[in-house]
Computed example of a mutant assay.
Amino acid sequence: MARLNLNLVRPLLRKPMYTCSSSSRTLPFLIGDHQLQQPIFNITLKKHSLFQFKRSYISDMRKSAFEGNILRLLRNEIQYELQRSTPTEPVANFDIFTIDDRPGEQWIRLKGKFKDEGIKVEVTMFDGAIPASKSGGGASIGDEVQLHITLIVNITKGEDGEVLEFMCSAWPDSIEINRLFIRRGDKMSAQPYAGPEFKELDDELQDSLYEFLEARGINDELAAFLHEYMKNKDKTEFIRWMGTVKTFIEKQVE
């Protein structure tokens, strides 16, 4: 067998196994007895990382300033509302009714009894308004409009008895009946017969139904009370809402 001429191989072993152009900066390292050349990419990577860091920092600063401005506006608004008039603690009773305030919701519930009847009244917050000139007297905003509250009055006899349900409007100084339904218990068909418009009924029948409600505490005094109650609730809920938004944004800033 022919023997390998080491004199021919040695020059090849001394040559670098990896080369790069003279313009590339290199870092030498050894494999065995041989020194190889490796390009350095560290500087380019560091410049890219620094650029990304600066962009992220600027973005965070802008976000922090934006959220800080929202917090400032919310604090100012809450302070203004509190200084203008501080909400009062809602009362728990009126006449024959106990009041379930439902904090954070747009309605309240009144419950009462009349003889052997149960009375439940669902009351919305202000949900409409009319020009003050179309309705006489009472509270208004800037003497321009009168606010409207919807009442749903349920009157029951016995646990499984029929329910007489009145759809009413509460104006600042009066109650107005809009509709009258009758249903059994808590069940109502998908398309119940709603009867005629209340104003289409005989005048004497209308008067009798108003007297029927008045005897059960659904009267002008209740309307006036509910308007004052809802003014206070409206402010309370507005301040609570702003406080909730403020707390949420504060958590994002942390």
Results as ranks from 00 to 15, higher is better:
residue 244 T to V: 12
residue 208 S to M: 07
residue 74 L to Q: 03
residue 24 S to Q: 12
residue 14 R to A: 12
residue 235 K to D: 08
residue 39 P to T: 06
residue 40 I to K: 07
residue 189 S to P: 00
residue 41 F to K: 13
residue 96 I to R: 12
residue 42 N to C: 02
residue 13 L to T: 11
residue 80 Y to T: 13
residue 25 R to M: 11
residue 173 D to G: 11
residue 116 D to V: 08
residue 62 R to Y: 05
residue 102 R to M: 12
residue 13 L to Q: 08
residue 87 P to L: 01
residue 244 T to R: 10
residue 33 D to W: 13
residue 70 I to Q: 12
residue 91 V to Q: 07
residue 57 Y to R: 09
residue 187 K to E: 14
residue 174 S to R: 15
residue 231 K to H: 08
residue 98 T to C: 09
residue 122 E to N: 08
residue 115 K to W: 03
residue 88 T to Y: 06
residue 106 Q to C: 02
residue 138 G to N: 09
residue 197 E to W: 10
residue 61 M to D: 13
residue 247 T to K: 15
residue 152 I to C: 14
residue 50 L to F: 04
residue 211 E to I: 01
residue 195 G to P: 00
residue 36 L to K: 10
residue 205 L to F: 02
residue 57 Y to T: 09
residue 39 P to V: 12
residue 39 P to G: 14
residue 244 T to F: 08
residue 144 E to D: 11
residue 39 P to Y: 07
residue 186 D to N: 05
residue 101 D to V: 12
residue 67 E to C: 07
residue 33 D to T: 11
residue 151 L to W: 04
residue 215 A to W: 03
residue 9 V to P: 04
residue 20 C to P: 04
residue 157 K to H: 10
residue 230 M to D: 09
residue 95 D to R: 06
residue 15 K to V: 06
residue 7 N to Y: 11
residue 113 K to A: 04
residue 86 T to C: 09
residue 112 G to E: 12
residue 104 G to N: 07
residue 172 P to I: 00
residue 71 L to N: 09
residue 17 M to G: 15
residue 150 T to I: 03
residue 49 S to C: 09
residue 171 W to R: 02
residue 47 K to A: 11
residue 182 I to M: 09
residue 188 M to G: 06
residue 110 L to Y: 03
residue 10 R to F: 05
residue 71 L to P: 02
residue 64 S to L: 07
residue 103 P to H: 09
residue 71 L to C: 05
residue 116 D to A: 12
residue 148 H to C: 01
residue 65 A to T: 00
residue 228 E to L: 13
residue 27 L to T: 15
residue 61 M to R: 09
residue 149 I to R: 05
residue 161 G to Y: 04
residue 107 W to A: 12
residue 119 I to A: 12
residue 105 E to P: 01
residue 193 Y to W: 01
residue 14 R to Q: 11
residue 222 L to D: 05
residue 106 Q to D: 15
residue 158 G to W: 03
residue 18 Y to H: 08
residue 129 A to S: 06
residue 194 A to L: 06
residue 22 S to K: 14
residue 75 R to M: 02
residue 83 Q to K: 08
residue 175 I to N: 11
residue 102 R to K: 14
residue 151 L to T: 04
residue 186 D to T: 07
residue 74 L to A: 11
residue 246 K to N: 13
residue 80 Y to N: 13
residue 221 E to P: 06
residue 197 E to S: 01
residue 177 I to E: 01
residue 33 D to N: 15
residue 118 G to D: 15
residue 158 G to T: 02
residue 235 K to F: 00
residue 75 R to Q: 14
residue 143 D to T: 04
residue 182 I to F: 03
residue 244 T to H: 14
residue 81 E to V: 01
residue 214 E to H: 10
residue 188 M to A: 09
residue 50 L to H: 14
residue 195 G to E: 11
residue 121 V to D: 02
residue 24 S to V: 15
